[in-house]
Every structure is written in C-alpha cells, then in structure tokens.
C-alpha cells in the first residue's frame, strides 16, 4: 500500500574519522511530507544531502550501506548524478536566487538541460510560477532582478526553479529559517499544495513547524535515528524517552 521513494539500509556516514550518521534505516513515503528534526549537529542536514549526493562536494566524506532512490541504488559507479539531481530538487536554508532576472532564474535549469523549445520554456516558467503562487505577483516583472523580491518571494522563486526540472522529490533544508512567521506559514501552505504531486523531505529546527506541516517525523539525535513514525503519534505519544525530552524542550 505505501510506496517508498527513498529507502536507506544500514547507512553510515563519516567525515574523515568522525561518524556523523550511524545505522540509519529510513523509508520515505511517496507524496507525503517527511520532517527530519533534532538538535543542531545531529546529522539531519547531512542525511538530507545524502539523498541527492550533495555530500560528494565535501572532501573526506565516506558512506557505507544502501540508499535507494526511486528504486535505484544511488551509490553505484554507474549512478548518473545529473539525472538523479533532476529527479530530486533541493531548496536551501537561505533563499539563493542567482543575481539574474526572475525569468532567467526560473529558466536556468531548462537552459542547462535544453530539451525544450523556446515556446515550451515560457510555458514551463509560467506554470512553475503559478504552482508557487507567484505568477499573479510577478507576471509583469519577469525582467526584474530576483534579488529585489522579498525573502519569501525569493524562496518561492527557488522552489519554482526546482519545479521546472519536474522532480519527483523535493528536499528542503530549513526553508523557512530566514523568513518571518507569516511568510513561514504561507510556505507551509504551499508545501501542502505541492505534496499532491511531489514527495517532500524537510529538515527543520522548528518543532512546531514539523508538527503543523508534516505527515511523518524522523527524530535524529547524535547521528542516530531515534524514532520515526507518523507525526501525530510522535508528538502525542513518543515511544522513546529522548524524543519526549526533545519535544518537550528539555534539551536541544
């Protein structure tokens, strides 16, 4: 009944000799929002970056165990990173549009992969902006610099930029940490909209956000997956003492 789009088995990750993730076994459900929570340095961002192999950019990272994304092991020599990263989009902590126009930002991925015509380009840009509810605000300002937008609009723009790739999974690394509470709520609404078509994995520092916005929650502590399950169960009746302590604010 449940389809898993990401499965990890006995995943260990080392930064040189420091073990950042220990024996992570985690299955992420399709078209659900999965929140990774835990105190700073617990390995949640590191885990997120395993899924699209962004950790490859860091020297000295070593990974053992299996990670299957959409049915394929992503740590084989044949793994096509370019294809993988088209299937898995990523939204970052700080909104990071390029210093280009709104249109050029959205079209960036399309330009790189250039398998569409100019006409389709414009359509995809429009469609992506509509999906993140920016089209009405920005349709007359597509030539303006993306850096002139508000932070919330910039973050929506970054999400739209990911959507042009037609990914199946969207990874979000604390996407609201630079935003004010109102903007945060609106991004969360957007996530509920997006989960109809996409699987979302979100790293968050904000326990209320995980409670409000996610279907499943994984609690990580010191590189271990302490508890994983439906968000409502985790928050109402955590099985582990450490989860309870963290959620009630006794540490972290």
């Amino acid at each position: 009944m449940n389809t898993f789009v990401i499965e990890t088995k006995h995943l260990d990750l080392f930064y040189d000799s420091f073990q950042a993730l220990t024996d992570i076994n985690l299955n992420i459900e399709e078209k659900k929002i999965t929140a990774l929570i835990g105190p700073s340095g617990c390995g949640k961002s590191t885990l997120l970056r395993v899924f699209n192999r962004m950790n490859d950019l860091i020297d000295g990272v070593r990974i053992t165990g299996d990670v299957n994304v959409l049915g394929d092991n992503i740590f084989t020599p044949e793994t096509d990173l370019i294809a993988l990263r088209q299937k898995i989009g990523m939204v970052f902590q700080r909104p990071n549009p390029f210093p280009l126009s709104v249109y050029e930002n959205i079209a960036f991925g399309l330009k790189i992969h250039r398998n569409q015509s100019k006409k389709e380009f414009t359509d995809i840009v429009k469609e992506s902006l509509k999906s993140v509810i920016l089209w009405d605000d920005l349709k007359d300002r597509l030539d303006n610099s993306a850096l002139k937008l508000s932070l919330e609009q910039q973050q929506r723009l970054c999400i739209a930029r990911v959507l042009t790739m037609k990914p199946q999974i969207i990874l979000m690394d604390e996407p609201c940490s630079a935003l004010d509470p109102i903007a945060t709520l609106r991004i969360e609404e957007l996530m509920q909209e997006l989960k109809k078509n996409y699987t979302i994995v979100i790293v968050t520092h904000n326990m209320q956000q995980a409670a409000r916005a996610s279907d499943n929650t994984a609690f990580l502590y010191l590189g271990e997956l302490v508890e994983y399950g439906e968000t409502k169960h985790i928050y109402s009746s955590p099985k582990e003492k450490r989860t309870e302590d963290y959620l009630t604010g006794r540490f972290g």
Binding site: L57, R85, N96
Partner: peptide, 13 residues
C-alpha cells in the same frame, strides 16, 4: 559558493 551548489543541485554538470 551557493551559486555552484544551486547549479549542481539542479542537475548541471
């Protein structure tokens, strides 16, 4: 550095 990271995360070589 974020320009490079974003670009790579969008599947650019």
């Amino acid at each position: 550095q974020s320009f490079r990271i974003v670009s790579l995360s969008l599947g650019a070589s």
